[in-house]
Amino acid sequence: MNIDLTGRLALVTGGSGQLGRVMCRTLAACGADVAVHYHRNAAQAAALVAELRALGVRAHAVQADVTDEASVLAMQRDVHAALGDPDIIVNNAVIQYTWTTVLEQPLADFDSQYRSTVLHGVLMARAFVPAMITRGGGRVITINTECAMQTAPTQGAYAAGKRGLDGIMRVLAREIGPHSITVNQVAPGWMISEDHPADDSDAQAAYARGVPLRRRGTDQDVANLVTFLASDLAAFISGQFISVSGGNVMPTI
Rank of each mutant, 00 (worst) to 15 (best):
Q150G: 01
M169N: 15
C147R: 12
G167K: 03
A159G: 08
P130T: 08
Q155L: 06
G156E: 01
I143F: 13
V129P: 03
T151L: 12
T142S: 15
R139D: 10
M169T: 02
R163M: 14
G137W: 09
I143T: 15
R170S: 00
F128D: 12
I141F: 08
R126Y: 00
G156K: 03
G156F: 03
T145F: 11
K162N: 12
K162C: 14
Q150M: 15
G137T: 11
V140N: 06
Y158P: 09
M132N: 10
A125Y: 00
V171C: 01
K162R: 15
A160T: 14
C147K: 12
T151Y: 06
I168N: 00
A159R: 11
G156M: 03
G164D: 04
A157C: 07
T151S: 09
G138Q: 08
M132A: 10
I133D: 03
M124S: 05
A159D: 08
V171P: 00
R170V: 00
R135W: 01
G136H: 03
V140Y: 08
I168F: 04
A152T: 10
M132W: 11
R139W: 03
A152V: 08
G156R: 03
T145Q: 08
P153K: 02
I141L: 15
T151K: 13
A159K: 07
I141N: 10
G161H: 10
A148T: 08
I133G: 02
G164M: 05
M169P: 01
I168V: 15
G161I: 09
T142F: 13
Q150Y: 05
L165H: 05
A157I: 04
R163H: 04
F128A: 14
L165M: 15
P130L: 07
G167V: 02
K162L: 13
T154K: 07
R170T: 00
P153S: 04
A152N: 13
A152L: 13
R139H: 07
